[in-house]
Design a protein around this nucleic acid. Sequence first.
DNA 1: ATTTCATTGTGTAGGATATACACAATAGTA
DNA 2: TACTATTGTGTATATCCTACACAATGAAAT
Lengths: 248, 248
Amino acid sequence: MTKRKSESLSPEELRTHGDRLFLSHLSVDCVIFGFHEGQLKVLLLKWKDGPWCLPGGFVKHHESVDYSATRILKERTGLDEIYLKQFHAFGDPQRERGKRYKQGWIANRFVTIGYYALVEYSKVFPQPDLLSSECKWWDVAAVPDLIYDHKQIMTTALETLRLSLNDHPVVYNLMPLKFTMPELQRLYETILGQRLDRRNFQKRMLALDILVKLKERKTGGAHKAPFLYRFDKKKYDRAMKQGLVGGW
Amino acid sequence: MTKRKSESLSPEELRTHGDRLFLSHLSVDCVIFGFHEGQLKVLLLKWKDGPWCLPGGFVKHHESVDYSATRILKERTGLDEIYLKQFHAFGDPQRERGKRYKQGWIANRFVTIGYYALVEYSKVFPQPDLLSSECKWWDVAAVPDLIYDHKQIMTTALETLRLSLNDHPVVYNLMPLKFTMPELQRLYETILGQRLDRRNFQKRMLALDILVKLKERKTGGAHKAPFLYRFDKKKYDRAMKQGLVGGW
DNA sequence: ATTTCATTGTGTAGGATATACACAATAGTA
DNA sequence: TACTATTGTGTATATCCTACACAATGAAAT
């Protein structure tokens, strides 16, 4: 095994001899969530002349899988230091049925490891990769047909996010620096797929003791100006570590 | 690619040419939990002339990863139809440092997918595999040094189990058909690593509405004979599906 | 300038749930 | 027969969750 390999492959080389650079049979797919104008969004790629799919990639020979996910994320969004969490591996041999490539390395069976990312919408500049013609945000509620089992991967990611909301206030990573309580509530509601009581929501959020109420209000809206809040990063980090309730 | 391959390999063939039967770079490890005499147990293998490790194996070319885990479990415990859950993939390139094999297929880097299983102790007849000399239960609190990152894999499994206890009454799979409330409490306590109040525990368990109190008592103990309980499978299954509390 | 209206800010009462704690009953043992 | 560790059951309190009401406000409509 040579010590160093070419650090990049052409699309053609990838198809035929991806194993020069990457582990065989293993891929990574990222479900990248954002939040904008009251809607939960997910970042999708469109293959040249083909279907939509999740941004994904492969694992280099001497690279950790976590790092692969980070790298893919960086390539697609330009973002570093993102909240990124592995949530499930998808290992059905039929998961890629209908694959377009019948030959070469790329035609192999791939087990894919799913990660979801929470990013601040406004900071992202979507970038298609070499095999793609488009890279853009979609409303979670309105994603088109996706390739292979990518729809299921997305659904599982959302499900995981929804559950983790119970014990971890992960939404920090989706919100801008300053935000109003109604905006935060909208985010919870889209993730949970359920309306929440405005007053109880506020009480619950404040009880977490991770928010700071600012003096400013958000003006420009057509009604009473809501206060702005920001996260108290220290308290937020502590809450993330400890978990929220416990149950036992 | 030939359609059918030999369904088994000798240990030597596995070392040198495992890829005839298995996917490269991918393995499965199982953390098999049991409960006996008030202690949470985990099933470990000992390599011939080597360290202890988790029961694991590889993924056949046309087999789902879930099935691989099921197969490995069956081989080690003789059990079918077991509660088995994927919990994390471990993909650090350094995770197998100190590997004994320097050559051949087995020397490759492996990303491993962790599953944990909950089994009824009394039904298990531990069986070593071809590479192992021993297969036996260890107290979770007293497992020896394990190979590679297997200790961390076990810890992560336990952590996952502990958290899932909050929303799913998974212990069904660890208990015998009939059991007493103190026995059930002992199980919760060992999983959680924490003492619980006897009276509140009972109330909480009964409130789940998944237990049936039997007329019989467990005799033979040195004190007041406790009642026996069993799970109401229907209600239990419903509780497993729905989750327990919700939070939101 | 005044009214309108959707929205925000804040509080309270009631119910459900969790926690802390006490005493009687009992099966084997001394 | 008394003793002891354990089990069965209940209650009072605090805490949390849920449902709901009313005043304040800022832009838009009149």
